[in-house]
Amino acid sequence: MQRANLERAAAHYSYLRGWFSVAGGLLFILAALANWEAGPFQHAWVFPLGVVGIGAACLPIARFYNEHYGRISVSTRQYVRGAITVAIGVAVMLGLSSLLRSQADWSLDLPVNAIAISFALIMLLSYAVGVGLRAHHVLIWATLLVVGAVPVWDGADPSNIGLVLAGVALMVSGVFDHRLFVRTFGPSRRLNLEDSGVGA
């Protein structure tokens, strides 16, 4: 019996439900398209509708994971840890983006893609703290980091391209995370489930 694996089951469950990441990546791409006012996104109502659609798509995703893999409630400690990670992540993303390239007087105004760099760093940190980095995490997020850091992003603000790159990376990472999730917890065939008689 691997004690560490059993104790990390909850973290694996929380971090590796990759279909949610796929939905999240789609949201990033939609945001970029809305910023560009590309095609139908020139209409103000299209983006909110897209957000609602993606939100609605998360419901069957949640149901899939809940019904085939169960439900958990994380401990208060994990909840606080998660909240702190999110808060740090947002602060890093905003701060680093502004520092690397923004209209602020104190910005370094480097020819890099600040969104890509900061989001890649946040994801690497998040996975490292949460479940430990896997090969696909390093490959995907380090690639985004390198692409963002290459000094070719001079000229117009590359933030929207950064959002698209981050969105694509999130979707690809989500697919691999879900594969790892299935390897960890088994395929989604229905177990011989409830009516266990326990506690009756």
Binding site: L6, A10, G70, V74
Partner: peptide, 18 residues
């Protein structure tokens, strides 16, 4: 051991993890 890292979990999750 699984439950020690959680507040609670349902039967399906315990079956999957154990």
């Amino acid at each position: 051991t699984v439950l020690s890292s959680l507040r609670d979990a349902d039967f399906v999750f315990l079956q999957r993890t154990t």
